[in-house]
Design a protein around this nucleic acid. Structure first.
Length: 1064
RNA sequence: GGGCCCGUAGCUUAGCCAGGUGGAGCGCUCGGCUGAUAACCGAGAGGUCUUGCGUUCAAAUCGCAACGGGCCCA
């Protein structure tokens, strides 16, 4: 990596700058990553800061599914940049890469590989074998993903990551559950849960994925008891739940009607919400109707018969009544079918009114014995059968289809059902208030992520169902006594071994812990609850599991809680929440002090990237095309972190272009510096010969450092990185490099040139440190050459350096302002030149600056040389603010509306005279007296307006605080120089074509037929020879141009022929 | 249906918190430069600031509503 040259005679290592080739991101990145590995840069950087202030970061663990996507890349890039910045700021950082490795997603993948269809297949295969496969899958995918992250230049502790499948990690989860048990926040209970009938397990709210689905939309009549032909009408999309119907809910303050209707000659009385009657009658195709009675929901006392009592005998034992509920909405019929075993609201209504929680469906999605005739049928097939049965009973009022959002299992995509089952819960609702007050103590970026979004989610959260009836997960460490029902929670492996007498467990997964029994106080035998944890509980304990708590209590004391975490906004309901919940249970406080919530990556249209839409862009594709550095800076600078990022190849390309320019800026001075054997170590202090433009650049970068620091304080990564790009493009490349070109091209080693070297060197080195957190590769590459190649004592890596700190002695805000004005004037003058098509290569006689403000005067005075050079002007004329340039004429414009009425018939003559009048004199008179005399007439101020008239050879352009006039009049001197520069430009072009080195000399012949131009050019022979390094030069008309390269040129319609010869 | 966020030139965006003549980059058109050169620079065209209503002397900016997009929830 180091550019060291070993000289043969001395065998000494000579440290010196080396030239650089063109920017190839892939080469740079691969070399740098290899270099880091070789010197173990990551570990050494952490070691270097071990006495610094502690900064604890917890990596939100990605799920080990195999490939990372753009969003995961963005997430890790933010983390890496923040941590690198903190590290360079002196912080002692603790962070371990994390991996989320348990749970259904992996089980489902492994089931796919093994061709399994149900839990029975797994049981037959053997739980132990299955778990081993899952483990293998998780570990191999972790390895693949690690490589992908490292290719992005992400520095996390990859050697000692925290993994949820490790025993230490499992113990952290166990310990946490024990806390919940001791604080009476763990409970077992009957609850309606989201259930996946394929995976045969409860799934968390957060595991439910909503997607459009077409379902039946049916209106059903429930026969009212004791009233002939009278029915209460309900609506449902899940006919399969009708066999479990227990009640109907109505809204207490809605009005309900009893209405007599007729269809096919038959009369019926229907009950429904008044405002929805029209809809229901239309659905049922009833023609006539007669409202018999209107009453409030709260007055509706009705008992009805089970609609499928014949098929489900158990139903005959229940009473079916109408109950009041606020959740009833004015949609469909206003009467809601209630099956407490199959709906969340239903369940709660059932509990409140002590209704039976009737759930005749088993874990496999098939009806149980309780469902009578339906026993054994899968609910998926039941909809049609139930509807047929209802039709037969004459209870189906209408039947159609509806497309709506419905929940699906997030992994296998099966439609979920709701089942009342026995599950284990964390009573999060009991500690909700404390959670909300903890949220306020956390610093959120942006602020609304906590105060609005997260607080809102926590407010609406329910108790957390943590049990899953699966295999690959952390076993729930709860043992229940078969005799007395007592429960005990094992907090550690040691505790389990001690209580059970079993030792040397191979690991803490199923099935190893399944058949361990514990003796109960009552003498009975305790067995483990067969469930595993919801996988969200795994990552919930990450902040202390990563510290090896409960085994390492000191680490917890030293580091916990986390100083910072950052994840996408989907984690509001996920990791932000699960961590807070678990931490409140375990320690009574939030596990993090600050949270940066970032956005999602979307496609160019602003749509989600998904495989089915085919719009997915992978990080690898981007790296292949532009390199990791471009991707890094793109995601950091494109958006505010919390906004969603619409991916755009063009914009990544722009970032790459910026990096290429940075590289060219870095590369540009190297050949000169190498040639001059420039050694920055030999410069002590600041050179006295600094020009104003040098001081300006040195000041600019200090201001830039301040800007970056201010932005990073608030994790505004976009506001940190954008000014850096702007500095590189505007200040460095487009301005400073252009300013110093003539100086670097100078032969001698004069102080003026050294000052430019010094400035550029100082700024580039500072810049490498400034951009290192965001662009770790290119900065390292530049650093290795600029610093390490000249100073073996310097830190070995740029990432071992201290953060760039602004040097107050370099700051000169006044100069920065003045330079901005000069740049504006230069721009205006090139604008003006363009109007008269005068190339920049041709000097102009003079440039007149007409300022509107005093500070322009100061700027022009101070930076006149810069202005002169950049505008290629022989002279700068500076006027006072408000002064009009005397060479401007004044044109008098008559105001017809006032002249006409004032002079009537004579107006025509007045106008004619005005045309020939002396504008300047008239304006002077008007300004001084308010009127003037023209022949026999007196004209007043309202009769004329004035306009500056610009002479033909003058070009004008404005800037924000003034005007610029460019005098393009050609003189002999200017033509001489103009043509000379045309010739130089073409000879340089030919040198380039011959691929000559900078210092190589040539002989040149220039043939010009035009006598006048020949004479002009001949006068500049010495000047031309010097510029193109010609040892001999012949300029003439009757000569033959010859050499290694001969070319014909057309210079402003003048034919020239040039030949050059390389001098060996 | 609810919560939060976003909507500015063909594209990507700054400005919004703290109201006062909307700035960039890309692309396009025209021009310039030429020892950073498979680069670079300038100019021009391009805007109902999603829409509507309101507050105000004044609204891209503040408020309300609608529409479109995202995340989360029902």
């Amino acid at each position: 990596m180091l550019y060291r040259i070993t000289t043969l005679d001395s065998l000494e290592i000579i440290y010196m700058l080396k030239e650089a080739s063109q920017y190839d991101a892939k080469v740079v990145e691969q070399n740098i990553q290899k270099f880091w590995d070789e010197i173990d840069a990551y570990s050494r950087v952490r070691e270097l800061r071990k006495n610094g202030k502690k900064f604890f970061f917890v990596d939100g663990p990605p799920y080990t599914t195999g490939r990372i996507h753009l969003g995961t890349a963005w997430n890790k890039i933010i983390k890496d940049s923040v941590l690198r910045y903190r590290s360079m700021s002196g912080y002692h950082i603790l962070e371990r890469a994390g991996w989320d490795m348990h749970g259904l997603p992996i089980e489902v993948k492994v089931e796919e590989v093994l061709g399994f269809k149900s839990k029975k297949d797994i049981e037959t295969y053997g739980v132990g074998n299955f778990v081993a496969k899952c483990k293998e899958f998780a570990l191999s995918h972790r390895d693949e993903m690690t490589v992908q992250f490292r290719n992005l230049g992400i520095w996390l502790n990859w050697k000692e990551p925290y993994m949820t499948l490790r025993d230490e990690y499992i113990e952290a989860a166990w310990w946490t559950l024990k806390q919940a048990h001791e604080k009476k926040l763990l409970e077992k209970g009957l609850r309606v849960v989201n259930w996946c009938p394929r995976c045969e397990t409860a799934i968390a709210d957060s595991e439910v994925e909503y997607a459009d689905e077409t379902d039946p939309s049916v209106y059903i009549k429930f026969p009212v008891k004791g009233e002939e032909n009278t029915y209460i009408v309900i609506w449902t999309t899940t006919p399969w739940t009708i066999p479990a119907n227990i009640a109907v809910a109505v809204h207490p303050s809605f009005e309900y009607v009893k209405v007599r209707v007729k269809k096919d000659g038959k009369e019926e009385i229907l009950i429904m919400a008044e405002q929805l009657m029209k809809n229901v009658l239309k659905q049922g195709r009833y023609k006539d109707h007669e409202v018999l009675e209107i009453m409030l929901g709260e007055d509706l006392r009705i008992e009805y018969e089970a609609p499928l009592g014949e098929k489900v005998p158990l139903q005959k034992e229940f009473h079916h009544n109408v109950y009041l509920a606020d959740f009833v909405t004015a949609e469909n019929t206003g009467c809601v079918h209630i099956a407490p075993g199959h709906g969340i609201d239903d369940f709660e209504l059932g509990m409140k009114n002590k209704l039976p929680i009737f759930c005749p469906v088993g874990p496999d999605g098939r009806y149980t014995e309780e469902a009578g005739d339906y026993k054994g049928m899968h609910v998926r097939e039941a909809n049609k059968v139930v509807l047929d049965d209802l039709t037969e009973n004459g209870l189906l009022l209408a039947s159609g289809k509806i497309s709506h959002r419905y929940g699906h299992c997030w992994r296998c995509k099966t439609s979920i059902i709701y089942l009342a089952t026995e599950q284990w819960f964390l009573r999060v609702t009991d500690i909700k208030e404390q959670m909300l007050s903890e949220i306020e103590k956390v610093k959120w970026y942006p602020e609304w992520a906590g105060s609005a979004r997260f607080a809102d989610w926590v407010t609406g959260s329910r108790d957390w169902c943590i049990s899953r009836q699966r295999y690959w997960g952390i076993p729930i460490p709860v043992w229940v006594c078969g005799s007395c029902g007592e429960t005990e929670v094992m907090g550690t492996r040691h505790e389990l071994e001690k209580r059970s007498g079993v030792s040397k467990l191979p690991d803490l997964h199923r099935p190893n812990v399944d058949n361990i029994h514990i003796k109960c106080k009552c003498g009975g035998q305790m067995s483990r609850v067969p469930d595993v944890f919801d996988v969200w509980f795994d990552s919930a304990v990450a902040s202390w599991a990563t510290l090896n708590f409960p085994h390492d209590e000191k680490a917890l004391k030293d580091w916990w809680p986390a100083d910072f975490i950052t994840e996408g906004h989907d984690q509001t309901r996920g990791w932000f929440y699960s961590q807070l919940g678990a931490s409140m249970i375990a320690f009574g406080k939030a596990p993090y002090k600050s949270v940066l919530m970032h956005g999602f990556t979307l496609d160019t249209e602003g749509k989600k990237m998904s495989k089915s839409l085919g719009n997915v862009v992978s990080p690898e594709e981007v790296i292949a095309k532009f390199g990791a550095e471009s991707l890094r800076l793109y995601v950091l600078s494109q958006n505010a972190p919390w906004d969603d990022l619409k991916f755009s190849w063009d914009e990544v390309g722009n970032v790459h272009r910026m990096l290429n320019i940075l590289w060219n800026v870095y590369r540009f001075p190297l050949p000169y510096m190498v040639l001059d054997k420039f050694n920055p170590l030999e410069i002590n202090g600041t050179p006295a010969a600094l020009r104003l433009e040098d001081r300006w650049l040195l000041s600019r970068i200090q201001s830039l450092i301040k800007q970056v620091d201010a932005a990073m304080l608030e994790y505004n990564l976009h506001k940190a990185t954008r000014p850096i790009s702007e500095f590189i493009l505007e200040d460095l490349s487009r301005w400073y490099i252009q300013l110093i070109r003539p100086r670097t091209w100078r032969e001698s080693n004069d102080p003026d040139k050294l000052a430019a070297y010094y400035t550029l060197y100082e700024v580039l080195v500072t810049l490498t440190k400034l951009i290192a957190p965001f662009a770790p590769h290119i900065s390292e590459e530049m650093y290795q050459n600029l610093v390490r190649n000249v100073d073996p004592e310097a830190p070995q890596s740029v990432h071992m350096c201290n953060r760039a700190v602004p040097r107050e002695d370099f700051i000169d805000t006044e100069l920065e302002k003045q330079m901005n004005i000069i740049r504006e004037i230069v721009e205006a003058s090139s604008n003006a030149r363009q109007k008269l098509k005068r190339k920049l290569r041709w000097p102009v006689k003079k440039i007149v600056v007409a300022p509107k403000k005093e500070d322009v005067v100061a700027a022009v005075r101070n930076l006149e040389e810069v202005l002169k050079e950049q505008t290629n002007a022989k002279e700068i004329v500076l006027l006072s603010p408000g002064e009009t340039w005397e060479q401007l004429g004044v044109e008098v414009l008559p105001v017809h509306a006032t002249l006409g009425p004032a002079f009537k018939k004579e107006a025509g003559r007045v106008l004619a005279e005005l045309k020939n009048a002396d504008g300047k004199a008239i304006r002077k008179a008007i300004t001084e007296n308010g009127s003037f005399n023209l022949k026999e007439w007196t004209l007043t101020a309202d009769m004329v307006t004035f306009k500056d008239s610009i002479p033909q050879e003058i070009a004008q352009a404005g800037f924000s605080t003034g005007d610029v006039y460019v005098d393009t009049e050609l003189t002999r001197e200017i033509e001489c120089e103009g043509y000379a520069r045309e010739v130089i430009r073409r000879l340089q072009d030919m040198r380039k074509e011959l691929d000559l080195a900078v210092e190589e000399e040539i002989n040149a012949v220039v043939e010009i037929k035009d006598e006048r131009v020949l004479e002009l050019v001949s006068g500049s022979k010495d000047f031309i020879s010097g510029e193109v390094r010609a040892k001999s030069m012949v300029i003439g008309s009757g000569i033959e141009a010859e050499g290694d390269l001969v070319k014909d040129w057309d210079v402003e319609d003048v034919k020239m022929k040039m030949g050059i010869v390389r001098i060996k």
